[in-house]
Amino acid sequence: MLSADEALVRLKQGNHDFVNHVADSNTLAGLGASAELVQEQRPFAIVLGCSDARVPAEIVFNQGLGDLFVIRVAGNIVAPSQIGSIEFAAEMFGTRLVVVLGHTQCGAIKATLDQLSQPSDQQSPNLRSIVDRVRPSVDALMQTELRHNQPALAAAAVRANVDKSVDQLQHSSSVLENLIQNDGLKIVGAEYSVETGAVEFFDA
């Protein structure tokens, strides 16, 4: 299994290839079902990403079937089911890199900012549960001058939300904390640009 740093290099190269339209027969477009994958999976990275249809992790990182263990939820939020899924992959497969992948033009971020700016009781309880998980990461931004600049506010909110999710994963699970301290697990944040296709990794 790749180390966290080796996995990060592979993801960065994959995104570089995606942005530059570099074809690879081992990625999704060149693969059908594999007999090898019937027996086992060995994902080299775990990605907690947003459900947005424009941000499929396997494609933007130019990876193939079985390469990534992907959890997708609107707003790339952290809840018990997401933590459990990451714990499962890290323990079962020995995967040592977790990436929280946010993106520009995020609808969950916009819904949260809209709710903070103009509170409404029209949201369904289920959508509200997502907004409530995003809210703590962006609340403070609404008290700054960014509130007068919606594009800048949204951009800052995306990053703040990713940072919050990374922090939650690092400190809300004894399983993950142990793997970080003793077994080389690394959890990093990143942002995908819908406009350019490029992924920027934070502090990595």
Rank of each mutant, 00 (worst) to 15 (best):
V22C: 04
V9P: 00
N161K: 03
R96I: 12
I71L: 11
V99G: 08
V194N: 12
A45I: 11
V19F: 15
V131T: 14
M142D: 11
S117G: 14
V38R: 06
D52R: 13
S25R: 05
A155N: 03
L101V: 01
I130L: 15
F18M: 07
A111G: 10
A190I: 09
I109A: 01
H21P: 10
Q122C: 14
S25Y: 00
E191N: 03
Q122M: 15
S124W: 03
I46R: 03
A108Q: 04
K12Q: 15
G94K: 10
A111F: 10
G107Y: 02
Q41G: 14
G14I: 12
I187T: 03
Q82L: 01
V47K: 00
Q123T: 13
L65G: 02
Q118E: 08
A156S: 13
H148C: 03
A156N: 08
R54S: 06
C50P: 04
S117M: 13
D5A: 13
D139G: 06
E40L: 13
E91C: 14
I180W: 08
G30W: 07
L8Y: 01
A89G: 15
D163Y: 02
D17F: 06
S51H: 03
A190G: 12
I83N: 07
E6D: 09
N26C: 01
P125M: 01
P136C: 02
Q82S: 14
K186C: 02
K12D: 09
V78F: 08
L97H: 12
M92W: 13
G94E: 05
F69N: 02
V9F: 10
V175L: 10
L37E: 05
R128E: 07
G66Y: 00
A53E: 09
F18K: 05
L153I: 01
S117E: 13
E58K: 04
K186G: 07
T27G: 00
G30C: 03
Q168W: 06
A152S: 07
L141I: 11
E200Y: 04
D139Y: 13
E36M: 08
D17M: 01
D24A: 05
Q123I: 15
G49S: 15
N62E: 08
L48V: 11
L48R: 12
P80W: 00
V98E: 05
Q122S: 13
V22F: 09
Q63I: 07
A4R: 08
S51N: 01
Q63S: 12
L37S: 11
V22N: 01
T27Y: 06
F93H: 11
I86F: 15
C50W: 04
V73C: 06
A35Q: 05
Q39V: 15
I59T: 13
K12P: 15
